[in-house]
Amino acid sequence: MELLIFYPLAGLCVAFALGVVINNSPVGSAMSLIAMMLGLAGIFVLQQAHFIAVLQIIIYAGAIMVLFMFVIMLLNLKGSGEDASWRSRDKNLLMTVLSGFLVAGLLYKILCVLNSGEFDSPASLPENFGTAREVGTILFTEFVLPFEVASILLLVAMIGAVVLAKNKVD
């Protein structure tokens, strides 16, 4: 049953991820990326991570993609970006070979993990696994220091973004 939901969602994600890379206009890429994020949220729900799925929609499909669209519209990229010339760059063959190495390495590592026998039988899940209450409790007790560090990171990023976008760089 879960597989019936998983395969369409996974196919959707891969198709839209390819759409991001292949699309010539940045707006089309952004739209594909939003669709991919929504598909991923579905996959997170399938993995019982409801809280993360909601965060995925709010943060990625909401905030981050609005930022992307905002910058695309602000820069008004008609004619100043790239055209279709990236398809016929002479470096593409080298890049393909490098990606091939990456694929081989990833497959080898995944097969190692799967054959190690450590992950043969799934652990049984408690009833409230992945709910906001459960994740929130752990976040504010066991992982409270990383949480605070993340808030400092976001503050620094915010200040950095304001300073970078405000001043004229020479």
């Binding site: 930022l67 910058v71 973004a161």
Partner: peptide, 12 residues
């Protein structure tokens, strides 16, 4: 969190 920070600084 890191993705949000990275995107805001990168787009700036």
């Amino acid at each position: 969190c890191v993705a949000a920070a990275e995107v805001s600084v990168g787009l700036a």
